[in-house]
Design a protein around this nucleic acid. Sequence first.
DNA 1: GTCTATAATAAGATAGAC
DNA 2: GTCTATCTTATTATAGAC
Lengths: 206, 206
Amino acid sequence: MYSVCVSTPERLIEATRELLWERGYVGTSPKAILQRAGAGQGSMYHHFNGKPDLALAAIRRTAEEMRATAEAVLGGPGSPYERVEAYLRRERDVLRGCPVGRLTMDPDVVVSDELRAPVDETLDWLRERLAGIVEEGQERGEFASALDGEEIAATIVATVQGGYVLARASGSTADFDMGIRGLLSLLAPRSPTGDSPTSTSTSTSA
Amino acid sequence: MYSVCVSTPERLIEATRELLWERGYVGTSPKAILQRAGAGQGSMYHHFNGKPDLALAAIRRTAEEMRATAEAVLGGPGSPYERVEAYLRRERDVLRGCPVGRLTMDPDVVVSDELRAPVDETLDWLRERLAGIVEEGQERGEFASALDGEEIAATIVATVQGGYVLARASGSTADFDMGIRGLLSLLAPRSPTGDSPTSTSTSTSA
DNA sequence: GTCTATAATAAGATAGAC
DNA sequence: GTCTATCTTATTATAGAC
């Protein structure tokens, strides 16, 4: 239920966003959306063309929001490594999973080019954004020059997405954090002599 | 539809396994299972206590199978790094996703301790198995001693699980492969002087 | 615009014939 | 053991009143 100062289409989109995050597309019924939005059937079919159309509006907004949240950190201050670390360590609703990434496990979303497009574009943008930062870090000598920026970026995004899987399997955020710490220790700037000078993980001994 | 030489409960379990992989728990109806198994309602409710009970049998078998598949590679020949690499590069139905990991995005599975248990135990086993191999590799000097085996193992599992997300988002296996190559380049054995001597990725220059 | 019928189809389970 | 009704509720959408 949302404040009465918000328009009905707005309430419908927000309710759909929440339910898509909690239960996915297949697990979300129009009825559940209407109940949460506090609206009747007629409102939904007046403003939208049905469940897929409403879901598309919700997915687009969620994708946009995720992009903005990531950009706030990735475009922030600090060295390339520090910005990647800030992205990886930023506060997350780990046990709820990624509201964008989870849609890739939804059969009806993956099968629809229209519903899948915002998901694909967002993850693709994130990968490219990270790749640029990694390459910038390589020029500064922060990351090993032998690495491939695009590949490392894919690894970073995958580790985050897979971290959600581990956390939701065990019901604990610890597994997510563990995977992130492992990745950060692998990414940690190394001096030319081989060992990591920067203590970025709990595992680095004195 | 399965061969007539297979028992009805067996056909029901196999049909459920397929549908759980394709559509998840929420997206799979008893009706769809019965049609694929070529059985009537009575058969299902005679052998199982309903959808959750049948799904549990299916999930347990899938989890067991995944464990055996992983062990076949992780317990195989080769150095620790080679076994990790073999695991990461092993043939996969990338676009279908992980039949075990995908269940963590199913709201009704995550909420049920019984249905979630096989998923949790399997991913936990995999993490522990990989952690042991990484630690073995550290003793041999194959992996940097500063790394934490448990953390690296979590990163490995997460990268695979997240790789499926990337691939399903774009509809292409290329993103999965890219993330895996990135991880392998980060894990690649380094000589004490700093650069990677073993060519494990397409990105390593001559 | 929003609401409440109404309706056709599907989900999930039970009963009882064979 | 397997099958086909039967049943209750939910899903998704339409129609038409207000």
